[in-house]
């Protein structure tokens, strides 16, 4: 993967949004954002109602994902272009899903909704309904998803990258500062994890930094590109953003997103937790 194959610009979207075989999809944390205005032709996926299982803590399975995309009118050979608010957090999360379920051509709009709005580009509240398809998701690719036992085994062995804010990493906050304080039972981070906030990979306008800046960012923070990497955050959406940077833009192999993230690790009984600004010992 590379920047060219994984990212598209706002100009590209303006030019190609009406092309047959191009499907724009908005995914937001604030699920009402789409209804107030979206890029013409874009459909919406709700990261919670559409992408999470309604009962268990897990995301939708292969059959559910197939049914969802069939219902929304997405074909297996479509070029799917994802974008959203919060600097593309949830769009990157959805991108990771599409990759997990083997979609061939999926892209992220660089800068997402924010860059689009700051450019004063057009948004519409026109309702979009695509004709149903027969989408067939592939077996989930677990080479890009990490589970808790693997994370525990990675302490002091693999690169662990905690992409939350410094205050969350150190244990001074349990959740991003725009949300009321709740979530995991305990604060802190997984021992030996480096704190490289997702935001360092993005410019103020939400676009991704240049490749050489990104490489320097992770290398300087102690990421050994010769080793496997697991990224995590609070619920896996910001770490999907970092997974996108490492795996899709920089083309690093063996990068996984731990979507259980801190809400799981910080609630597990008996696991090691480090407090403070230092990574801590294995």
């Amino acid at each position: 993967m590379s920047r060219e194959s994984a990212l598209v610009s706002a100009d590209w979207v303006e030019e190609h949004k009406n092309d047959a075989g191009v499907v724009l999809i908005e995914v937001d944390e604030d699920v009402s954002a789409y209804d107030a205005g979206h890029i013409a032709g874009a459909i919406k996926l709700d990261w919670k109602d559409d992408l999470q299982d309604a009962v268990r803590r897990d995301f939708v399975n292969q059959e559910q994902f197939s049914a969802l995309l069939s219902d929304r009118g997405v074909k297996n050979d479509d070029t799917v272009v994802l974008y959203g608010g919060n600097n593309n957090w949830f769009a990157a999360y959805a991108y990771w899903y599409f990759k997990l379920y083997g979609h061939g051509d999926v892209r992220l709009l660089d800068g997402g909704r924010k860059r689009w709005e700051l450019d004063s580009r057009e948004l519409t509240d026109e309702v979009v309904k695509r004709e149903a398809t027969e989408y067939a998701a592939k077996e989930p690719d677990l080479n890009i998803r990490a589970f808790r036992d693997e994370v525990g085994d990675a302490i002091g062995v693999k690169n662990l990258v905690d992409v939350r804010s410094p205050d969350e990493y150190a244990g001074r906050l349990l959740a991003p500062a725009h949300l009321p304080q709740e979530q995991a039972q305990r604060a802190g981070h997984i021992p030996t994890a480096a704190n490289i906030p997702w935001s360092k990979a993005a410019n103020d306008d939400g676009t991704f930094r240049a490749d050489d800046e990104l490489k320097t960012l992770y290398a300087d923070a102690g990421v050994d590109f010769g080793k496997d990497t697991i990224a995590y955050c609070r619920i896996g959406e910001r770490s999907a953003h970092t997974w996108f940077v490492l795996h899709e833009i920089l083309g690093q192999q063996n990068v996984k997103n731990y979507d259980g993230s801190w809400t799981e690790w910080g609630s597990l009984v008996g696991v090691p937790v480090a407090l403070g600004d230092e990574p801590g010992k294995a």
Partner: peptide, 26 residues
């Protein structure tokens, strides 16, 4: 955007139609 005392990003919100925003900080 809410930046901490070192200038690091902590959170970001879009303003409402009336231009309002709110953070729960430390």
């Amino acid at each position: 955007r809410l930046l901490d005392s070192t200038g690091e990003f902590t959170a970001e919100v879009p303003t409402s139609a009336t231009g309002h925003f709110r953070f729960f900080a430390a």
